[in-house]
Amino acid sequence: MVTKEIIILNEQGFHVRPAQLFVDKANEFHSDLKVRSENGEEADGKSMLDLMTLGLEKGARVTLEVSGPDEQECLQSLAELIESKFGEA
């Protein structure tokens, strides 16, 4: 299992579009993925509905927890997606 704490940087936070991009990317991998918010709430990183219930806004700290055969690649890819602000200006 690998983990990484990361900050949501895009202005609108984790709204529908970024959540969909995140889920699409997460589903490219075989590993299991959990997203944990600062307040301890946890979501399945491959479920858009689960992610949306976290209500993540700009500046929110989340922990990505990945376990499985391609965990390193999955974690790196998702961290890069978040750090790129999901392609938003």
Rank of each mutant, 00 (worst) to 15 (best):
M1I: 12
V2M: 05
V2E: 03
V2T: 03
V2I: 04
T3H: 11
T3V: 11
K4E: 06
E5S: 15
E5P: 11
I6D: 03
I6Q: 06
I6M: 09
I6R: 07
I7K: 15
I8K: 08
I8S: 08
N10C: 06
N10H: 02
N10T: 02
E11F: 01
Q12N: 00
Q12R: 02
G13E: 13
H15M: 00
V16G: 05
R17L: 01
R17F: 01
A19F: 01
A19W: 03
A19S: 01
F22S: 12
F22G: 09
F22I: 10
V23Q: 05
V23H: 08
D24G: 15
D24N: 13
D24V: 13
K25I: 02
K25C: 03
K25Y: 03
A26M: 12
N27S: 08
N27C: 06
E28H: 06
F29L: 07
F29Q: 06
F29V: 07
H30P: 14
D32A: 05
D32S: 05
D32R: 05
K34V: 04
K34L: 05
V35R: 11
R36A: 14
R36M: 14
S37H: 12
E38I: 13
E38V: 11
N39M: 12
N39T: 07
N39V: 08
N39Y: 07
N39I: 09
G40Q: 08
G40I: 08
E41P: 13
E41R: 14
D44K: 02
D44Y: 05
G45M: 06
G45N: 03
S47P: 15
S47E: 13
S47D: 13
S47C: 12
L49T: 10
D50N: 04
L51F: 05
L51D: 02
L51K: 07
M52I: 07
M52F: 04
T53F: 03
T53S: 02
T53N: 01
T53Q: 06
G55R: 10
G55V: 10
G55I: 09
L56V: 08
L56C: 08
L56W: 10
E57N: 05
K58G: 02
G59L: 04
G59A: 01
A60M: 01
A60C: 00
R61L: 15
R61I: 12
L64Y: 04
E65Y: 11
E65S: 13
G68S: 06
P69F: 04
P69I: 07
P69E: 08
P69D: 09
P69T: 09
D70C: 09
E71Q: 11
E71W: 09
E71R: 06
Q72E: 15
E73D: 11
E73K: 13
C74E: 15
L75A: 14
S77Q: 14
S77G: 09
A79H: 15
A79E: 14
E80F: 10
L81P: 12
L81D: 13
I82G: 07
E83Q: 15
E83H: 13
S84L: 06
K85S: 00
K85H: 00
F86G: 01
G87Q: 02
G87K: 02
G87A: 02
